[in-house]
């Protein structure tokens, strides 16, 4: 895939970290404000997709990236499942998805038991998944048919 002009590339360089940070903020505050894992993850994915669009990329690099992201995605889902499963073990009454951590005070950043942790895991997963979808579609349309 071809890159874009120097103006786009420079601006992307400036903007991408801010987008990433904003996505992170939305994920971490998911249990307090609107947003959460999915919305934040999508924003974070923007920070990864933008440089690829601006700078362009070559097929082998994209393939390598895709493999890594796939691993990250699977690990995140597994993490989500494990945290949900921990509820099964630690809640005492064998309940799947039970919120076994201390709930804390309403409205504080560190509160709501395991929901923020699940949010972070979901954020990582969504970010990886969105980027994977983008890269996979790019690879599909770039590769030369046999």
């Amino acid at each position: 895939m071809r890159g874009m002009t120097i103006i786009v590339r420079k601006i992307t360089q400036l903007v991408a970290p801010v987008i990433f940070l904003y996505g992170l903020y939305i994920i971490v505050h998911g249990h307090l404000t609107p947003g959460g894992g999915f919305a934040g993850g999508v924003i974070m994915a923007g920070a990864f997709i933008l440089p690829i669009l601006a700078n362009g990329s070559i097929l082998p690099n994209l393939r390598k990236e895709e493999a890594g992201l796939e691993l990250m995605e699977s690990a995140a889902i597994l993490g989500f499942l494990i945290i949900a499963g921990l509820g099964l073990l630690f809640s005492g009454s064998l309940i799947f998805f039970s919120n076994f951590l201390h709930k804390g005070i309403l409205g504080k950043l560190v509160s709501a038991g395991f929901i923020p942790i699940e949010n972070i895991v979901v954020g990582v997963e969504v970010c990886a998944a969105m980027t994977t979808i983008f890269i996979a579609l790019t690879v599909f349309s770039e590769e030369v048919p046999k």
Binding site: E70, L71, E73, S74, A75, I77, L78, L81, G85, L88, F96
Partner: peptide, 16 residues
């Protein structure tokens, strides 16, 4: 819940 946990978990274990 094991009926969902086991196939889901093994899917992503296999992916990794």
């Amino acid at each position: 819940p094991l009926f969902v946990i086991i196939p889901l978990g093994s899917a992503f274990l296999m992916a990794i």
